[in-house]
Design a protein around this nucleic acid. Structure first.
Ligand code: MN
Ligand code: MN
Ligand code: ZN
Ligand code: ZN
Lengths: 133, 133
DNA sequence: TATAAAATTGTAATGATTACAAATTTAGAA
DNA sequence: TTCTAAATTTGTAATCATTACAATTTTATA
């Protein structure tokens, strides 16, 4: 993944902050919150402001290279993987897993006349790690 | 629907406030927010406090007769229909529709070893009303 | 270099939710 | 019925994530 090119080709000027934030988000499997992103990056960018993290994520979202996850109310999480997938949150360890899903298998009744643009699927339960412990 | 019996059989003493809040929620198709619930009921119960609305909804959730909807971040919505169904939010008119869905048709890859306990499905798009206008 | 635009930063404001203690209501014993 | 304790409701203050906004810094370009 060429991050500079990815930002540039999505009309985002690749400043240091934007690059680091996107790299972090893309490489993290954690679907981090703003606080986590800020905490983990502030040592590498000592001048970083939390406002910049908010601003930057909003920019990413507006330009279609990041999406939000509200699997749990009161905590917004961010995801730089834009390919269609669902999310599974383990009630025990709290980890959020990506789940591959074929949305075409979803059979809705009675909404043929609606135009569905996005589909969000959130699962809760116990992951295999927690089940075998 | 016998509301008093519904509350009682779920270990909730049916006070006036609890009854009115549950009735309102059950009869509303709007998936209302705390603010809407409070605003719409305060004329009928002039002493009603917003804290009571929060407390009561938490009680309903803990006792399994209400669930939350976080289809949009920054606004929590409530639903007294506990039968499995998905939600569709129209981007144009903002209305949230119930959508019948057969979750058994969902085909996940690679999570056979996970134990899925709840499934939340949120759709966004345009409803037929807004499409034909 | 000089200037304007863009980006970043820090602080204050907002708004939803929660904490908590006081007031009121309810239920049961005497 | 009257008294007392528990349950419920209420109002206010605290918390915390997010947003607004103005000041500062950086970048681009003439
Ligand atoms: Mn993901
Ligand atoms: Mn519903
Ligand atoms: Zn787990
Ligand atoms: Zn509509």
């Amino acid at each position: 993944m060429d991050f500079i090119n990815h930002l540039t080709s999505n009309n985002i000027k690749p400043s240091l902050q934007r690059l680091r934030i996107f790299e972090y988000l893309y490489n993290s499997a954690e679907h981090p919150t703003v606080d986590t992103i800020y905490s983990d990056l502030v040592s590498a960018i000592p001048t970083l402001s939390k406002t910049t993290v908010y601003n930057t994520l909003k920019l990413f979202i507006d330009n279609g290279i990041t999406s939000t996850l509200t699997i749990e109310e009161n905590e917004v999480r961010y995801d730089a993987i834009m390919e269609e997938h669902a999310h599974f949150k383990c009630d025990t360890c709290g980890h959020i897993y990506d789940v591959e899903i074929d949305i075409s298998t979803l059979k809705f009744k009675k909404i043929k006349s609606f135009k569905v643009e996005t589909t969000n699927i959130y699962l809760n339960g116990k992951c295999n790690k927690c089940l075998t412990n």
